[in-house]
Write a protein that binds this DNA or RNA. Sequence first.
RNA 1: UCCUCGGUAGCUCAAUCGGCAGAGCGGGUGGCUGUUAACCACUAGGUUGGGGGUUCGAGUCCCUCCCGGGGAGCCA
Length: 430
Amino acid sequence: MKWIYIEDIANYKDQEVEIRGWVYNKRSSGKVRFILIRDGTGIIQATISSEKNDHPLFKKFDLLTQESSIILRGRVREDKRAPSGYELNIDHMEIIQIAKDYPITPKEHSTPFLMEHRHLWLRSKKQHAVLQIRAEIIKSIRDFFDGRGFRLMDTPVLTPSACEGTTTLFETKYFDQNAYLTQSGQLYNEATAMAFGKVYCFGPTFRAEKSKTRRHLMEFWMVEPEVAFALLEDIIDLGEDLILHIIEQVLKNNQKQLDILERDTKPLENIKKPFPCIRYDDAVNLLKEKGSKIQWGDDFGSPEETLLSQIFDNPVCVTHFPAKIKAFYMQPDDERPDLVLGVDVIASEGYGEIIGGGQRIYDLKLLEQKIKEYNLPREAYEWYIDLRKYGTVPHSGFGLGIERTVAWVCKLKHVRETIPFPRLLYKIYP
RNA sequence: UCCUCGGUAGCUCAAUCGGCAGAGCGGGUGGCUGUUAACCACUAGGUUGGGGGUUCGAGUCCCUCCCGGGGAGCCA
């Protein structure tokens, strides 16, 4: 008997097959009994029917509970009455385990309850759909960069010091010294970009900020390309292409999951290149017109990002920020040295910043001066300064946050559902 | 850290002015020949987050602590 996955069921019409999985739900109607079985790739209805209400499998059926693990064998039939269009008429059932009191029922639950049972919640349809889309997004990102000749560079998770010196880092022991969990692979990628021309890193990053919002996790994934010789406009172009590629791939390969999530895909389908691109100066004026209390020189808060994303249908690029609200390595604008050649891309539909990046300082003296200005320990940055001594070139890059991207594409209220096991403020279980 | 809302059965919630602790789902038992979160009947299930106070009487009012949601701040 051939063991198959439910997603392939259509290829086995009128054949005898074996399905291994878990009981999603069961129903009975006198002499016909139904088992909804899921195997991780889909859900199919299995049926047992008997004229005399004495089918040998009825006793086993009665034992089944939600999430019990079973192996079924039977014939695949096309049937309009079945939820998926196919069903399995079974003549064999092996029970591996009867699950007792599975906590997640087919009715409603609150998010806190479900988060405590995250290890089980992953089995539910919507969570399953979100994580399928996450996997597709990650694949599409890798394909995008690999297809354009970028080299994957795995940057370290344990780092000796703050990359920025501004944000709060998770500290850990590293034998007899202290180490920190990375908050970005960027500085290392500036080195690898000088070796490979165009590179990207993709991994988890960590921020110890006490943020309690729908857009923040303590541990999140980021993809960060870095390109030697690229200027601000080049990197904006790259970011636009990346976002368009992600959306295209999800729309092409995840229609089923988007349906489960009841995602209206029109706003995604309508996204076109080029994105509206405005300077920080203009963004501040625009926000003031819309009633924001923002002053020139302030960084955008969540309300500002939300407001900006509501003004445009497409994601929006904001460029030329005041230097003092951005990191030390940002290249100043030649015409307005108080501004830096940075870009934030703010996702549409209120999802906030998904890309942050820009052009990096490549002049040795200027970088040394900035490190002093920002009170950073020079000895920790000697290797980084070296990059400006040996064949320095203008270069640019950005970081794209995976969880916010997934939340946006799936139109979720909170990023906590976009990763199998979110690390939230004060919550590290399960 | 601040603001705000909440904590009642395993889960989701109700309980009027301070006056008998309630429903649906889930569990159990039985029924039903095509169910679609099936349905119908019956049934078990409670330290009302903890502690203290006011009162003849507290799920309800007051104090306090704990836990959680939402928001702000923080956030290349």
